[in-house]
């Protein structure tokens, strides 16, 4: 791995993104609109907003980064630029880490905006520190990026890539504890929920919103999400093949 190349990849992705005003607007504005919509729905039931708001702060960075990464990596695969890069002295980790850094930075901005709006304007009750909240959001975003990189290997078109979202993300969304507390799920589904990374992303965010301290459970949840992220990146690295058929 070569840090210069990694940085070159990351700054190139950010430069491309800067040109794409519409995507940037969708990434930054849509989560803000959604959280405002949620606040409005529960404007007379603050407790519900407080309960659901936290998990959503975990879900937005995950979902947005999953989508953006899977589609951009796929276009890198189909346009021939990935093949060209792999024919150059670029390590696969340089490529993956470049993506992770670039989208990680975007996730920071996105999370700060949404969290700032939710806490500062809409009155979401967050007991933990804003820094911890930002950190959890970044880890969630990196998980989305890593999974997006991985699934892009299994899609041939952007249309297929987008379909991975309902296939892989929505089941996690249903089982992550947002609709029913995870321990209230039927036993088998609880086991499934225990195996899925988004459950831990949401658990971590719930701890931040409900507790002022950094707890051992928070460390454990973040460690599990990070382990999934590294696992997905490693699998993603396997799918970046220099030689193709």
């Amino acid at each position: 791995m070569n840090p210069k190349i990694t940085v070159a990849v990351a700054s190139r992705i950010l430069r491309q993104l800067k040109r794409d005003h519409r995507t940037v607007a969708l990434m930054l504005v849509v989560p803000c609109v959604l959280i405002t919509l949620l606040w409005w729905m529960y404007v007379d039931r603050e407790a519900v907003f407080d309960r659901v708001g936290g998990p959503l702060l975990a879900l937005f960075p995950f979902i947005v980064m999953f989508l953006v990464t899977s589609v951009t990596t796929l276009s890198e695969r189909t346009s021939g630029t990935l093949e060209r890069l792999l024919a150059m002295p670029m390590g696969r980790l340089d490529f993956l880490c470049g993506y992770a850094i670039a989208f990680g930075l975007v996730a920071v901005v996105q999370s700060m905006l949404v969290a700032g709006l939710a806490v500062g304007v809409l009155g979401l009750d967050v007991r933990g520190s804003v820094i911890t909240l930002g950190l959890v959001a970044i880890v969630d975003a990196l998980l989305g990026t890593a999974l997006g990189l991985f699934v892009s290997a299994f899609a041939r078109t952007e249309f297929q890539a987008v379909q991975f979202m309902p296939a892989l993300v929505i089941p996690q969304l249903l089982l992550c504890g947002l609709f029913i507390p995870r321990d209230g799920l039927p036993q088998v589904l609880e086991w499934v929920s225990d195996a899925l990374p988004m459950s831990y992303a949401v658990d971590a965010m719930n701890i931040v919103t409900r507790s002022t301290d950094w707890t051992g459970n928070l460390t454990k949840d973040l460690a599990i999400v990070a382990a999934w992220t590294f696992g997905a990146l490693a699998l993603g690295a396997v799918t970046l093949r220099r030689r193709t058929a």
Binding site: K4, I5, A8, V9, R12, R15, Q16, R19, D20, S79, G80, T81, E83, R84, L85, M88, P89, M90
Partner: peptide, 21 residues
């Protein structure tokens, strides 16, 4: 088929690949 980035300028493309090389 040209494998360069459509949404970068010519010089930005070249500077990026020069950095990789």
């Amino acid at each position: 088929t040209p494998s360069v980035y459509d949404n970068l300028t010519v010089a930005e493309n070249l500077r990026f690949f020069a950095a990789v090389l």
